[in-house]
């Protein structure tokens, strides 16, 4: 009985302690995510600029000489962009395979856009020990390719 209690405690403690171990951010190809890749013999570097507040061009309508004229332009208001970096030097951070069904904590691009407070989004992501980025296009036979990225941050605007 004592062993059973210890076992249950261990399971509980493990699941509690590691509940914030890994989170997976799922992205897919969209004009609002820019992926810049660099690869050499020893370095693989992927950078993702993920725009959270896509700014739509505003259209001004006017009539010139009886013809409808549409002018579109945007201001310079700040846009919130995430800056995710994956870095693998001499194989120190190789991509891993993760079974889709085994992912416990995940968030996708559409959900990140909807976050009420982007600072809270960053803080939440940072509260996990490991943040993995998954390109949904990598899905094959029940598995994704996951890349462990560096501490999530904004691309600070100026």
């Amino acid at each position: 009985m004592k062993n059973l209690i210890l076992f249950l405690f261990a399971v509980f403690a493990t699941s509690f302690c590691f509940s914030q171990e890994d989170i997976y951010v799922l992205i897919k190809e969209t004009p609002d995510i820019k992926h810049i890749a660099y690869k050499s013999d020893t370095i693989q570097h992927d950078q993702y600029y993920i725009k959270l507040s896509p700014q739509k061009r505003k259209i001004t309508l006017s009539i010139i000489n009886g013809n409808l004229r549409k002018t579109s332009r945007g201001g310079v208001a700040s846009r919130t962009t995430l800056n995710f970096i994956y870095q693998n030097i001499n194989g120190n951070n190789n991509p891993t395979l993760i079974k889709k069904d085994s992912i416990k904590n995940e968030i996708n691009y559409e959900e990140m856009i909807l976050a009420k407070d982007y600072k809270n989004l960053i803080e939440t992501l940072r509260s996990f020990k490991n943040v993995y980025l998954i390109d949904e296009a990598s899905f094959f036979d029940g598995y994704y390719i996951a890349k462990k990225i560096e501490k999530p941050s904004f691309l600070p605007g100026l």
């Binding site: 820019k34 810049i36 660099y38 050499s40 020893t42 370095i43 570097h45 950078q47 600029y49 962009t81 800056n83 970096i85 870095q87 030097i89 941050s153 691309l155 600070p156 605007g157 100026l158």
Partner: peptide
């Protein structure tokens, strides 16, 4: 602050190896 302008990628793509890494990690 200019990372999303048209001139940025051509600038950093002129570099290689650890110089490239230094530049992309300038923050």
């Amino acid at each position: 602050g200019l990372e999303e302008t048209s001139g940025y990628l051509p600038y950093r793509n002129n570099y290689d190896g650890f110089q490239y890494l230094y530049i992309v990690n300038i923050i």
